[in-house]
Computed example of a mutant assay.
Amino acid sequence: MQTGRMRTELVSEPGDPDRPNEDFAGVALPASGRGGSLVVLDGVTPPGDGGGCLHSVPWFTARLGGALTELAVSLPDVPLTETLSRALARTAGSHAATCDLSHPRTPQATVVLARWSPVSVEYLVLSDSVLLAESPDGAVTPLLDDRLDRLPRSALATHALVDSTLRNREGGFFTAAADPSVASRAVTGSLPRGEVRTLTALTDGAARWVERFHEGDWADCLALIRAEGSRALVDRVRELERADAARRTPRRGKTHDDATVVHAELAAR
């Protein structure tokens, strides 16, 4: 999508073509044409019992993502933490009467939310999706919530252990589920608009190029996207996943994960 001197590119692909994509991605531009926002969610695959909810993870990410997309541009003066809190409350209200929202695996998602104006770029990151901010001189800054990465592997041995001791708990990690107060746990900040040339959001399925396969650093990842496009990054990840599965004992986690990339080249002010 191109508007004036602004260009955005979005790619989202399920890890398994026979299963729905649990990611959500969206870009919104206000009617004024000044500024914009992007939203990327990575839905958390539920356990076999469904997590106490009648609804699917794609149902949840679509509603939460839609609420975030609307609120981020319709309420430009509301901080992003409050935007996420309101979106979570709205989404929870749509199924609180039918579902057990206290279940540790009630539908939930990681969040990347960014909003820019002629003055600033605000950002919010919750859990293990990634936001890359590129400056006009080409320097790339990863904006991360690394709490999950800092946990010892022994603490992540089973889903039951994670759910009972770490998920949405102090000393563990946080995801967007039913509790609006989790918004205060997100990594947030603001950058001067003149210091940001591009923003790129990736779910961990796309970020595997850096984080799992170590094909390059974040600057190399962005260089690939700029040179060949977001689709090329996802295609490279799929090639690496297939090669890895063919030659190794299977790793912990999915062989193929949903992969989403949103790349926004911001218009000059």
Rank of each mutant, 00 (worst) to 15 (best):
G171E: 02
D18P: 00
L84P: 10
N168D: 11
G43F: 05
G4A: 04
P30M: 09
W116S: 02
G93H: 13
S230C: 15
V140R: 03
S56G: 13
S117F: 00
L54G: 15
D18F: 03
S184R: 12
L126P: 02
A268K: 05
L75S: 04
A28L: 05
R226A: 10
A219Y: 00
P20C: 04
P58T: 10
R63Q: 13
A155G: 12
D204N: 13
D258K: 11
P14Q: 10
T260K: 04
P142C: 05
D137Q: 10
A31P: 02
L233Q: 11
L143P: 05
A97S: 14
P192T: 03
D149T: 04
E170V: 07
A157T: 14
S32K: 03
S190R: 13
F60T: 01
G189R: 12
G33L: 10
L54H: 15
V140W: 08
P30F: 08
P107M: 00
E9M: 10
H159Y: 09
L41K: 01
L71P: 01
L156I: 01
G48M: 09
E13N: 00
S190H: 01
S12V: 05
S135Q: 08
R212G: 00
L202N: 14
L84M: 09
V11T: 11
V27L: 06
A264I: 14
E211K: 12
W218Q: 03
F213D: 07
E211L: 12
S85A: 15
R63E: 05
A28R: 12
G205L: 04
S12T: 15
R238M: 05
P17T: 05
S94V: 02
A264E: 02
T98F: 01
S117I: 02
T69M: 06
D100I: 05
A183P: 11
E122T: 00
V140C: 03
R212T: 15
V11G: 03
G48D: 14
T203P: 01
S181H: 07
D137M: 09
E239L: 12
G66Y: 00
V234P: 06
D149V: 03
A96W: 09
G205M: 09
R238C: 04
A177F: 07
D244Y: 15
D257K: 11
V234G: 07
R34C: 01
D258L: 06
N168P: 07
V130A: 04
V111W: 08
